[in-house]
Amino acid sequence: MNRTEDIRADDLLLFCTQRNERIRLPYFLEYYREMGVGHFFFVDNDSNDGSLDYLADQPDVSVWSAKASYKRARFGVDWLNWLQMKYAHGHWALTVDPDEFLVYPFCDTRPLRALTDWLDASSIKSFSAMLLDMYPKGRLDEQPYQAGQNPIEIASWFDSGNYTISRNHLFTNLWIQGGPRARVFFPDEPAKAPALNKVPLVKWDKRYTYVSSTHMLLPRGLNQVYDEWGGEKASGVLLHAKFLDTFGAKAEEELERSEHYAASVEYKAYADRLKDDPQLWCKWSERYISWRQLEILGLMSKGNWA
C-alpha cells in the first residue's frame, strides 16, 4: 500500500521495519501521530499475525512487504535506506522500531516540529537518542500487555548510571553499552553487550545511509552528535519497551529463525539466564517519570535549547 502521494513538503516521516508486532502497533502509531509525524513508512517482514492488513488500513501509512531474509538485508537497514533515498530527501526522517519511543527535551510541551525547526535553524542535521532499556518490576511475564496500552506503564524501570562509552574511530560515532542487558545477559562478556547509541532523527538527503541499524550513518559527519570540548549538545532518549510479557515468545521464535544480530546472541543469553526467572529489576533501578528526570540523570541533554 503506497500512499506517498499524500506527503506534503514539510511532513515529518517515520521509517520502521516490523514482524508480527500487531499488538504494539496501535499505541505506536498513536504515540508518533500525537508527536506530529506526518507519514509512516513500514516494511513488513513476512508477518502472519494480521499486522500487514492492519497497517494497510491506516490512512497515513505506506507499507511494503519483504519476504526475504531480515539478516541478509542487514537487519532491515537496506530496505529502509532504499525507501529513504526514494522518499525522504529534504524531510526530517525518524527511524525507529515498533518498541522504541522517542523522548526529547520539552517533548511534553513542544511537538517534534519545534525540535526539527530548531535543529534546522541551528544547522544541525542529525539528532542523537540513546536506547534506554525499560523493564517491569518483577517477572517479565507478570503483567500482560494489551493492544493500545502504553508499554511504559508496565516497563517503567531503567538503569540510570551504568553505561560505558568508547569512540569508534572508523565512523567517529560513540559506542555505548551497558544497562540491564549488560548487567544481566552479559556479565561475563561485556564486549558482546548490544550497542545503545542511536541517531534516529536525520534531515535526510539522498546521499545519506544508515550503516548498521540506526547506530551509525554515512557520511561520518552525521555521527558527530556529541561535543568533544566539554559542552553538551542537545539529545534525546529512545525508551526501549522490548521487555514485556511478549518477550519470551519472541525470543523462542527468533532463536529458531536466527535472523538477528550476531547469531541472535541476545536471545541465546536470554534463554540461558532468564528463562526460569525472567527478572531485570534490581534495588537500584530507577522508575521513569519524565524527560526532565532523564536530563537530570545525565542520560540526555537540552544542550542550548531552552
Partner: peptide
C-alpha cells in the same frame, strides 16, 4: 543554556557530551 552548551556538566560522560 549557553553555559550548558559550552561547558556542560563536569564529570558527565554521555551520548552528547564525550570530552
Amino acid at each position: 543554556a549557553v553555559e550548558r552548551r559550552t561547558r556542560g556538566r563536569s564529570g558527565l560522560y554521555m551520548q552528547s557530551r564525550f570530552p
